[in-house]
Simulated scan of single mutants.
Amino acid sequence: MPRATGPLAEALAHRTVVLDGGLSNQLAAQGCDLTGGLWTARVLDERPVQVEAAHTAYARAGAEVLITAAYQVGYEAFAARGRDRDATTALLHRSVALAARAAEACDHEVWVAASVGPYGAVLADGSEYRGRYGLSVRELAAFHRPRIEALLAAGPDVLAVETLPDPDEAEAVLTVLAETDAPAWLSYTVAGGRTRSGHPLPGAFALAAQAPQVIAVGVNCCDPADVLPALEAAASVTAKPLLAYPNDGSVWEPATGTWRAPGSLPSWPTDAWYRTGARLVGGCCRIGPDRIAELAREHGGPIM
């Protein structure tokens, strides 16, 4: 079956859609080296066949949306490693093409979501878990604009604006999206009932409430326990479909480049997430194909 033929926004109006899981942990499970500041972008650059294999693993598990390996691909980061703009643009295009190939080889409809990671991801120092970069909205928009333009030129089904720690960065990305007619979702990383930068969630979600390009809002790369309060905050300010793809509860330690794992894998109260309005649900860091397969079996399909 080819890639999904209808817009993702139409599907969300009448059924739940299952996202994929963490790309980094799946690449590591396949034996890939993710050391260095480029992280998954290193594998995209050096071993693209492994990226396609990771996408395929999630599609076979039942994922209906594959998020590309563009999260940490930035013009500035690759320029510092001697790559010109054309080479970086080609890498962004490759990220979409690899996910599209995996989608086209699958036996069910699959959408391709081009990852638009935060400014902090390109710094590779854990800044996406702090926010407050010291940049203006205009400066952040200038950072995001060329990458978004390059990704859109590759033809994804939707943009995955993800792991934003700060409403200022959300405002910047929304400014760029307003220059296009491209559909996108917008997802914050949160902790303790606030964005990672410490801003209240209702105001952060309200930024996207009136943006016609935004088809869903929610959270990712957070503790599963933080999902429901965040979804409730989003539902209080917008009627858009909600989304959630948390990690496994581990905490990222940027100084060592490792995850500090929880004592046990927490259960996910997905029924409560769906009752609150979640229509896109999957996993982020350290969530693999097995968990996505569970979600697909339990929650994929028409809204009950």
Rank of each mutant, 00 (worst) to 15 (best):
G277K: 00
R15N: 14
A9Y: 00
S187I: 04
L152Y: 01
R196K: 12
G131D: 00
S115R: 09
A211Y: 09
S267T: 14
H55G: 04
G74F: 06
I303T: 14
P146N: 02
W268Y: 15
G288F: 07
P224K: 15
P118W: 01
E104S: 12
A142M: 09
G300A: 15
Y119K: 04
L34N: 05
T5C: 06
W259H: 07
V96T: 07
G301V: 03
A142W: 04
L164Q: 04
D271Q: 07
A70Y: 02
V73A: 12
G218I: 04
L19V: 14
F78D: 00
T16S: 11
Y188M: 02
T5M: 04
P2A: 10
V137S: 10
A172F: 06
C285T: 01
A4K: 00
R83P: 06
V43I: 13
F205M: 01
I148C: 08
T88L: 12
S250F: 01
D125Q: 00
C222H: 08
S95R: 05
A272K: 12
A150Q: 04
S197A: 15
A142I: 02
A113S: 14
D248W: 02
C221S: 06
V161P: 03
E76V: 07
L38Y: 06
R130M: 04
G31R: 03
A234V: 13
A100Q: 06
V51M: 05
G21A: 03
D107I: 07
V219G: 09
P266I: 11
H108T: 13
E162I: 13
V176C: 13
A233E: 05
H55N: 12
V214N: 05
P266R: 14
L159H: 05
N220Q: 09
G288I: 07
R297T: 10
W111K: 04
G37W: 03
D168I: 13
W268L: 15
L242M: 03
G155I: 02
A244C: 09
T276R: 07
R260V: 14
V43R: 06
L152H: 06
H144K: 13
A234M: 08
P183W: 08
E253Q: 12
G6A: 15
S95C: 11
E179H: 10
A204R: 02
P246A: 07
P289L: 07
V281K: 01
I287Q: 05
L44S: 00
A59L: 10
E109W: 01
V173F: 06
A172P: 10
R194P: 02
A154Q: 07
W39Q: 01
A160K: 04
M304K: 09
D168A: 15
V281M: 13
L228E: 00
V190Y: 00
P200L: 10
S115D: 11
T5L: 08
T256K: 09
G203K: 10
G198M: 05
A141V: 13
D86P: 01
V251F: 07
A9L: 07
H199I: 00
Y75S: 12
A234W: 00
E76P: 11
E162R: 11
R279Q: 08
L91P: 01
A272W: 08
G6R: 13
G263H: 12
L159F: 04
Q26I: 04
R275C: 09
N25I: 11
T88S: 09
Y133M: 13
V116A: 12
P241Q: 09
L135D: 04
E294K: 14
D248I: 06
G126F: 05
A103N: 07
E128A: 03
T56R: 14
Y188W: 09
G282M: 08
L265Y: 12
R275G: 05
